[in-house]
């Protein structure tokens, strides 16, 4: 079985060289890069799938595809290391290597016909956003959409246009935003995501919860969801591990016998409970 959608050549380690066509500054340390190639969109991922992005003479790293258009892919990338430093200095027109799509993506069938509760923190909204946009594009397939998102401060909120303009306009969709610490202009909620979630108190009935964010947030969100009677089968999250090949060969992203690059990055809590606690 291959998730390639027919896009990769016979050498899966060889990237397609595309270009950055647009850069959006989301926060002081997050930028969204719009990437396309000579032959249009380098590949067509399902929500939650990953792409290996490279500045060819610097290095490669795996990122979730936060959303896509008919001709391009978008990667929202936080500045944390060597490669991301170089990416953040790049300008429109910069050549970018991309290969993918990798990973399993979100289990769409599990979500269909159900209400969806999205819980994101910081840059963790990037993969969640691909599913939110998929739900919006296929609006009739899903019930109510509830989006809960938090960041450290108002300036650290990613995808502000979506949060405050685009998503609230969608039918039967609620967007709740919180920050750990406000500023003089912030009129919204102040507080951590798990407490905010408990305050909103969404019903677990016929609902799937999808959460992604910093490990510490996920830990407490899972506790809150348990309190609200969400079952492990109803909770979906994504994992992050160091990756090199993206195709299940190089070894390092395993958790037990699962490879995050192939078998993940999306797992239900029920699946995670069966896996060794080593991530």
């Amino acid at each position: 079985m291959c998730n390639c959608n027919g896009s990769h050549n016979d050498n899966p380690l060889l990237p397609v060289v595309g270009k950055i066509i647009k850069i959006v500054e989301e926060t002081p340390d997050v930028k969204t890069f719009h990437v396309t190639s000579e032959n249009g969109k380098p590949f067509t991922p399902m929500p939650g799938q990953l792409g290996m992005v490279s500045i060819v003479d610097v290095g490669e790293a795996m990122f979730s595809v936060t959303t896509q258009g008919p001709e391009h892919l978008e990667f929202a990338i936080k500045r944390v290391g060597t490669l991301t430093d170089v990416l953040h200095e790049a300008e429109v027109g910069q050549s970018i290597g991309v290969r993918g799509p990798y990973g399993n993506g979100f289990p769409i069938d599990l979500f269909k016909g159900k209400d969806v509760l999205f819980i994101g923190g910081g840059i963790g909204l990037a993969p969640v956003r691909s599913m939110i946009n998929y739900c919006i594009e296929n609006r009739d397939d899903f019930g109510k959409l509830t989006i809960i998102y938090g960041a450290r401060s108002p300036e650290d909120l990613c995808f502000k246009d979506d949060l405050f303009e685009n998503w609230p306009k969608v039918r039967d969709t609620e967007v709740h935003v919180t920050v750990d610490k406000g500023d003089d202009n912030w009129k919204g909620n102040v507080g951590f995501v798990p407490a905010f979630l408990e305050q909103i108190n969404p019903s677990p009935e016929n609902t799937i919860a999808l959460t992604c964010g910093p490990p510490i947030m996920i830990k407490f969100v899972l506790q809150s969801l348990a309190k609200m009677n969400f079952q492990p089968e109803q909770i979906v999250t994504t994992l992050e591990m160091r990756m090199k090949c993206g195709i299940g060969k190089c070894g390092r992203c395993n958790i037990g016998s699962k490879f995050v690059c192939l078998d993940g990055p999306v797992f239900t809590l029920a699946e995670l409970n069966q896996m060794p606690n080593e991530y």
């Binding site: 060819v56 003479d57 610097v58 090199k244 060969k249 190089c250 070894g251 390092r252």
Partner: peptide, 24 residues
């Protein structure tokens, strides 16, 4: 044992992407 790392060797404007044994 088959684990490997993937690395760059850049010299000026050109370079080679190579892999190399890695160890858990």
């Amino acid at each position: 044992c088959y684990c490997f790392d993937i690395l760059n060797r850049t010299r000026g404007k050109q370079g080679v992407k190579y892999r190399c044994y890695d160890s858990c």
